[in-house]
Design a protein around this nucleic acid. Structure first.
Length: 469
RNA sequence: GCGCCCUUCGUCUAGCGGUCCAGGACGUCGCCCUUUCACGGCGAAAACACGGGUUCGAGUCCCGUAGGGCGUACCA
């Protein structure tokens, strides 16, 4: 089917906290879908719940989306700013008989529901005011309810879930306007999506039932329903709902754990969506490939191991200077003092070897210990073993050879060290390992001769000297 | 309680009736490469939830069962 109507999608988070991982993926899917088709991707903040919405949370969502590299078209819409329009739409529906005022009290409703539950019937509240004579109305604030059909069924053609049906008897006369005159989420979404020209509503599976309710509103308003696509939720590694313990962190937490935004996008796109066997891809590829038909129906578990693997691959392909900047930035957030220019230069020089050995920026920073540390180095346990008396003895003997290297570069240092090892009937490893331990304080590092070159002749010799007394 | 959705290796998934004694990726375990670790290469173990149908033939279609999830608000 090819129609001329441009695709318009939107991400509509409620500002009650940070942007969590599930929301980030929903936004991603919406962006991929729209941009892949030359359409527009909009952002709307669902702040109709005054009590729970905060400006800080709204800002956190903006920041989170930006860090994730998700950018919406135009200005973000505040749902709360549109209450006049919501009220107007409700009045229109009221005038047309598609809605009615209801004075039922909270107690009456609760009692009716309890009754229904006891009788094992659906707990839908049937308001006595649906067909009551308005003249009998009390002089009290009331709510506006949709006059939903009680017979027949409502079906939703979902782009991911397929055709889903509900008996209308299961759907109640939902509240459109609260007794204080503010719109409910259920009503505001429909009015806003319609007014904003949204053609595809891509959102979490938890909204599937809402699609039925909202369909009823669309029908009552006489508006065409958009295409719905309910994507499965993300679960924690244990299969349970995402909790703070595992993945339900703000995206800023992932930034602090050292993940790259492009890796997050890649991982999140692949979680619940597939394009054949493709695992590692660019944003351009994802945009070109993404389609609702490739979205899975079952919930997926969040797997840090796979995220880490993807992150490692994206780091290897990332620009060195950018990684340096990202690491420095992360270190600053970790409260570390800013490294001086010379150290930063050494860091940049070592980056090719460093990024090959890390899955996250945090790991990368850890393996770069030897660059940021100052003498005397803190020798870890494994390095200490390498620096046993025998190891120190070898280093002591190696020192003159090392000191004789005038052209302090990796290749020259290596040649000299190999010559030394051969002359003493030692395997290269027997010399290189203690050398690495002395130079880095660790048993693991990039190629030791590269490390030495990065450190420079004086610093290198001094570190070896620290171990040979 | 009622309604809806889901169910392929530990995890993410491919599979859209026969080419599947089920393929890829992560993870795990071996081996190789090697100054360490990584990278890279090679290899291994590892799944169609269960039971009925339909069909010449089912991972693929239908119905049950079990398990999981979501919803059931004057929250979003």
């Amino acid at each position: 089917m090819t129609d001329a109507a441009p695709v318009v999608t939107r991400f509509a988070p409620s500002p009650t906290g940070f942007l969590h991982i599930g929301g980030a993926r929903t936004a991603l899917f919406n962006q991929l879908y729209a941009r892949g088709r030359g359409g527009r991707f909009l952002l709307r903040i669902e702040d109709t719940d005054q009590a729970r919405s905060t400006p800080e949370a709204t800002q956190a969502i903006f920041d989170g989306l930006r860090w994730m590299g998700l950018d919406w078209d135009g200005e973000a819409v505040s749902q709360a700013s549109r209450v006049a329009r919501h009220r107007e739409a409700a009045e229109e529906l009221l005038a047309r008989g598609g809605a009615y005022r209801c004075w039922a009290t909270r107690e009456e409703i609760d009692a009716a529901r309890a009754q229904a539950a006891a009788e094992k019937r659906p707990m839908v509240f049937q308001s006595p005011w649906r067909d009551a004579d308005p003249a009998t109305a009390p002089d009290a604030p009331c709510v506006v309810r949709l006059k939903a059909p009680r017979e027949g069924e409502t079906t939703v053609e979902d782009a991911v879930q397929g055709t889903v049906r509900w008996a209308n008897a299961q759907l109640d006369d939902l509240i459109l306007l609260r007794s204080d005159g503010t719109p409910t989420y259920m009503f505001a979404v429909v009015v806003d999506d319609h007014d904003m020209g949204v053609t595809h509503v891509i959102r979490g599976d938890d909204h599937l039932t809402n699609a039925a309710r909202q369909s009823l509103i669309y029908a009552a308003m006489g508006w065409p329903t958009p295409t719905f696509a309910h994507i499965p939720l993300i679960h924690g590694p244990d299969g349970a709902k995402l909790s703070k313990r595992h993945g339900a962190l703000g995206v800023d937490a992932y930034r602090d754990m050292g993940y790259l935004p492009e890796a997050m996008r890649n991982y999140l796109a692949r979680l619940g969506w597939s394009h054949g066997d493709d695992e590692y891809f660019t944003d351009a590829e994802a945009t070109a490939w993404f389609d609702l038909s490739g979205v899975n129906k079952a919930p997926a578990r969040f797997d840090f191991a796979k995220l880490a693997d993807l992150n490692g691959r994206h780091m290897r392909d990332a620009d060195d200077a950018r990684l340096v900047a990202a690491c420095l930035d992360l270190m600053a957030r970790q409260g570390r003092p800013m490294a001086d220019a010379a150290t930063q230069a050494r860091f940049a020089q070592a980056m090719p070897g460093l990024k090959l050995r890390a899955k996250t920026l945090v790991e990368l920073i850890e393996t770069a210990y030897y660059i940021f540390a100052t003498r005397p180095l803190e020798i870890d346990e494994k390095a200490a073993k390498l620096l046993d008396p025998a190891g120190r003895d070898i280093l002591a003997k190696l020192t003159p050879s090392l000191a004789a290297v005038t052209d302090w570069r990796s290749a020259a240092i290596e040649a000299q060290t190999r010559a030394f090892a051969e002359a003493h009937g030692l395997k290269l490893g027997a010399v290189a390992q203690p050398l690495r331990a002395a130079a880095t304080g660790r048993a693991v590092s990039p190629g030791v001769f590269d490390v030495l070159e990065t450190l420079g002749r004086d610093e290198s010799l001094a570190r070896v000297g620290d171990q040979t007394g």
